[in-house]
Design a protein around this nucleic acid. Sequence first.
DNA 1: GATGAATGAGGCTTCATTCAT
DNA 2: AATGAATGAAGCCTCATTCAT
Lengths: 229, 229, 229, 229
Amino acid sequence: MRGKHKTDNNEHKQFIDNRSISSSKDEGLIESKQLQIVEGAYKLFLTKGFHPTSIREIAEACNMSMGQLYHYISSKDDVLYLVHKHFHKIMYDFLKTQKLEEYVSPVEKLINFIKANLYFVNQNKKLIQFISTETKYLQKDYLKDVLAMEKESTIGLYHQLLVEINKEIPIIADLEILASILAYLVAFLPMKGWTVNEDSLDDVNRCILDLVFRGLGQSVLQEAEKFLI
Amino acid sequence: MRGKHKTDNNEHKQFIDNRSISSSKDEGLIESKQLQIVEGAYKLFLTKGFHPTSIREIAEACNMSMGQLYHYISSKDDVLYLVHKHFHKIMYDFLKTQKLEEYVSPVEKLINFIKANLYFVNQNKKLIQFISTETKYLQKDYLKDVLAMEKESTIGLYHQLLVEINKEIPIIADLEILASILAYLVAFLPMKGWTVNEDSLDDVNRCILDLVFRGLGQSVLQEAEKFLI
Amino acid sequence: MRGKHKTDNNEHKQFIDNRSISSSKDEGLIESKQLQIVEGAYKLFLTKGFHPTSIREIAEACNMSMGQLYHYISSKDDVLYLVHKHFHKIMYDFLKTQKLEEYVSPVEKLINFIKANLYFVNQNKKLIQFISTETKYLQKDYLKDVLAMEKESTIGLYHQLLVEINKEIPIIADLEILASILAYLVAFLPMKGWTVNEDSLDDVNRCILDLVFRGLGQSVLQEAEKFLI
Amino acid sequence: MRGKHKTDNNEHKQFIDNRSISSSKDEGLIESKQLQIVEGAYKLFLTKGFHPTSIREIAEACNMSMGQLYHYISSKDDVLYLVHKHFHKIMYDFLKTQKLEEYVSPVEKLINFIKANLYFVNQNKKLIQFISTETKYLQKDYLKDVLAMEKESTIGLYHQLLVEINKEIPIIADLEILASILAYLVAFLPMKGWTVNEDSLDDVNRCILDLVFRGLGQSVLQEAEKFLI
DNA sequence: GATGAATGAGGCTTCATTCAT
DNA sequence: AATGAATGAAGCCTCATTCAT
């Protein structure tokens, strides 16, 4: 009834169009208001979680009236989607700007990429935890969309790097699966960190890096040892 | 406000006492009724998640009246706790009965332990996913309790095995952290499974095993290669 | 989800079961509470109409909390249905008790039946008007149910009487259609009453009676003239 | 509160002036825009009813912005009024153009008039039903206006014809009441048609015609029988 | 004159929990 | 000990209408 989830047939748009969520017509306004919503909502989500956060609280947090809020979303589920989308964007943007071109060795690139990812993940523990735990509450269409987004961004970057390494040093593994696993592994601390001493953040990161680079095989490790401090 | 969270001062009891949750006095009855609750509730939780499941649905699912239900729990949160406790128990029980004594080599023990764990995890995808994503909604005291339980059971088993290996082949890593990471890694598929082809379950498991055993270092790998098919 | 509209397969129950509307288990209680709801709601409906009456007003009018109200209905639509059902019951009960057995001539029976119906209709103008104008807002299943009810009660009684007459004096018309038309005609005043002077109620009734009995044909009229004052 | 209900004191204008509804000054524009509104709105009303149709839907359906819409009406109620007015106009226009002058006998005129009315009514079932059921939601002043309109148009035409007949063949009845009843009777099918087999439209019409012409008395019937097929 | 974003009260419904029976 | 009816606050969402641009 409320035209959401209409996936755009326009082949240049691969993801769900924000305009299908909002009843507004001004696309620029939609974008800016939805950002305002995300910024208001995600802080609440991080502390309380999705379900315990009420739509009224969200409206307050982003300084909107209920009516205005619903002008730019069509249901509470949309907020969850918008937060996911935003998260994947900022994480992707962060990882993308890591100037990996500076490094010649693809292994060195991967090392620094993982380090960057670990850094980001530890700077955004709560957000990572939120995303990991509430993704399942996305509606079907949104879920598909978000998973596709993830695969094309973060996981995609891992995959590229693995492919690059594989050209020089063969990695005996399915690179797509490996990319997914690496992206998952890196989120260990926000997800399970509580079982680990808070102080040992560096130890954990080291442990993950070691596991990964040893795990990629003897030849990769030899190369990697040059760069692992 | 309500009588929950009374941590038992009895130093021999390390976990929260069920009797502090129930207003009943017959401990056997409490146990059996709470099991009934868990069995009714967890199926709902797996499909709908914790918050979207209502206490009334739970009562129906476990064939209890509201009154009876509240006789054995003191709030909905208790159900979440009971399900967690139950999960850790069955997972621990499963892993415990893996007859690892049969194997002489500690590395072989670990291999088979991880395989068993992967098997369990894949047999209980939804449950694993539920536990991983809703743990954060446990109340503080319950959370502490559950994390302690986890550390003493699954993670504990990993730790023991690593210690055993370490006696023979030194592992350069904090074994506690490593144990946590391994336990986390094994849950990859249920958590991220959707991004991976259903058929490639074996590929994924293989990938994880390889990553781990290469990751434990050259010496462990050499030993492991004898047993990895 | 909320099991309403489950038409009972039990062949003795032809109409929608009240228990499918309520989440209560005590059938006697359901009946009495639903009556309480109908009595609270219908007065509001008569003055304000269905949509302008809020569910909160209904709860107040029948001295129930919101929660209690929804224990005995599952949506506002149910109230509309209950009011319809109640209306058809009381109208049927009234018409049924008209002791038409006293009259020998079937034509006289019809005369007195119509008179009774006109009387009832004029005593319950607002109610008749409400029912006639809001029936269309019944949900599909409820609509079917209510129309069936009507056909079996009021219209059914008209039909029986026409059949009885027809045995003695042939009526050249489809008796089912005629029965429907008569039932409709009788509601003229509540429906259009506003266009007609209040005082002329008797004139209108006379006019309708005349129209009908002349309308049934010369032979019926001759018989009828004996009884029409 | 808002500028509606200003009844015009100008004694030559008997109906509510459209300009009192609109804030525009160009009367031609008002007329054309209000027609646009009526045409957009009435389709929605026919399917959903008055209250369930939102003013936003109306704006969309008639391709107007909210602002423009409210330029030509001053509240949602106005739309209901405009639709009523429009309905009475088109029905009156249709009936007026029935070239009854062709017939010499006033009884034949009435026969053909009723047939035309039945035809119109069956062509516009949903509209008739809508008007009949939602008139009660007109605001007081509008209601008075609409009822006066009806009396002067459709009912008026019936009345004229009855008077004409009455000159030749006395009808023993209050002709005003009779006119109202006839106009009401003719709407039987849209209002109660659902209780009657869909196919039997012709039977129903026949039944109504018979009822009416027999109902007007023996002498009228004799005359009528010449023309009733 | 025209737009459509903004308002915020109020719509219907559900909920965890209690307590009279 | 057991029942399930009762509570009423709070849930999400929509609405007719206004007014800054």
